[in-house]
Design a protein around this nucleic acid. Sequence first.
DNA 1: TGAATAGTGTCTATGAGACATTATTAG
DNA 2: CTAATAATGTCTCATAGACACTATTCA
Lengths: 257, 257
Amino acid sequence: MNERNEKPDSFKPSSYRTPDGVPTDIVVFTIASREKEGAKKALPIRELQVMLIQRKMWPFEGKWALPGGFTRDTETVHECARRELEEETGVSGVLLEYFNVYSAPGRDPRGWMISHAFFALVREGCLAGRSPSDEAAEVVLFPVEEALEMELAFDHAVILRDALERIRHQMLTTTIAKEFLPEQFTISELYQVIRTVAPAFEERNFLRKVTSTQSRKGILEEVLDSDGRPAVSNRYSQRPAQLYRFTDYAPELSIYG
Amino acid sequence: MNERNEKPDSFKPSSYRTPDGVPTDIVVFTIASREKEGAKKALPIRELQVMLIQRKMWPFEGKWALPGGFTRDTETVHECARRELEEETGVSGVLLEYFNVYSAPGRDPRGWMISHAFFALVREGCLAGRSPSDEAAEVVLFPVEEALEMELAFDHAVILRDALERIRHQMLTTTIAKEFLPEQFTISELYQVIRTVAPAFEERNFLRKVTSTQSRKGILEEVLDSDGRPAVSNRYSQRPAQLYRFTDYAPELSIYG
DNA sequence: TGAATAGTGTCTATGAGACATTATTAG
DNA sequence: CTAATAATGTCTCATAGACACTATTCA
C-alpha cells in the first residue's frame, strides 16, 4: 500500500468531538397466520408483526424499543446488525437490509450516537425459540398497526415508520415477498402476502396477470412434480391450486416505458 | 421528557472503542454539453461528469478523492453533506440524497471512520465559480467513464460505482431527470439526459410513449404560451419542438401489475 | 347439496413495438 | 435544394380491466 505512508507526527485524528457510539437498530418483520374462525378449509388470516424489546436499563427504562446494539471496530455496521439479529432472535440466513441512518443531535441521551437502521424479514416460526438477552426485559411481536401507535424509546417510532414505508415499496418493486413464503406457493398465498404488507395493492385479475404465458414477465415459474405435471396444493382450498416458485429474474422498472 | 431521567452514576457511555470520526463523501454529478462538430443546429453531445478533488494532505496525498468532510456533533450527516457541498462547490438548493454507509474496518488509515455517502445532481454551469478549499489541491470534473478507471483515495472507487448504479436506477424510476434539465424542455432533451446517465435505456417511440394523451401517465404536461397555444423551442432543431415540464405526480411502479 | 377457493371465457379499449412517412425550419 | 430533428400514420399483437362463468374438492 504505497499510499499508506507513515502517519506524519503532525497528524491529529480530529480536533473535533467524535461520536460516543455507532449503534444499529433492526426492524424485524414477520407475518403471522391464524386459521379462520369457521374452521373450514380456508385461507388463513395474515398479519404483519414487528419485534420489540422492553428496555430494562436507562435510558427509556421500561419502554419498548427496536432490538440492536453497538458496532465494534472490527466489523461493518452490516455485520453488526447480522450479529445482533442472531444474538437477540437466534435467526440467521434471513434477509437483512440497510435502509437509513439516524443522526439527529440529541436523539440518544447517552451521548452522540449515530444509528444505522436495518430491516429483517423473517418467516413465521423462525422466531419460536427466542429468549430475552441481557439488554431486554422481554421480546414480543406486536402487530404493526399497534406498534405504530406506541410511544417507543429514542426515535424508534420514526425508524419503524420509515422501515414500513420501505418494505411496502420493496414488496411491490422487488421479489422480497419470497422471504415470507415457502419455496413453493400458490398465487393466492402470494397475493395475500403482498396485501398483508401493502394493503393498498389491489389487482382484480392477479392470478391471470401473474401467470398468463406472456404476462408473467419471468418472475414466477410453475412447479412440476416427478411426472412433469404441474404440482398442486390443497392446503388452503378445496380445489387444489397450482404451485409456483420465484425465478432469479428481477425485471427492470421504468416510469418512461 | 419523563423518560429522560437523570443519568445514573454507574452509566458509562460505552466500554468499547468509539469511532474516530464520521465523515461524509459526496458524489457530485453533472452533465456537460458540447456543441456538435458540424456547427449546424443539432442536439449537443452530453456527458456525465463527476467532481473529484486532489488531496494535498496525508493520507493519499496527491490522489484524487470525493469531496466531503467530518460530521459535527451539532448536525445530522445530511446537514453535514449539505454544508460540505456548499463549502466545496458553492452550490446550494440542488438534489442531495443519501445512499449508503461505508464502514469496513481499515478503510481509512487515520482511524476508525464510518463514512456516509451522498450523491448530488447539479446542473451544468452551477459549478462555474468553484475554487479549491483548504483540503484540496484542485477541484476537477472528470467524465464518469474516466473516473471509474482511476485509482481513487480510500474506498472512493467503490462509492463512485455504487453512486452511479444508484442514479442509473433512479433515472428510470423517479423524475430526477429534472435535476439536469431546465424547467421547460423538449422530449429529445429529456431522452438525451436519460440516455446520458443510463445508456442501456432505449425506447424507439420515446416521444409518442411519453406524450400520447393516455400514455403519458401524468408525469409530463405541455407548456402553453400566453395565448394558450403549445409553446415550442428551436434551440436544438430546425423544426421547433414542443416544450414540456414535469408535474408533481410520481407513478407507483410494481412488478406485479 | 353449499361453501370456498381456483381458474377460464369474453369483451373492449388501450398499449407496445416496428417502420414508414410527412412536417418544419435553417442555411 | 439538403440537413436535421419533430411528429404522425398504420399495422399487428399483447395487455389491462371488468365481470360473468365454470371447475374442483371438502364436509
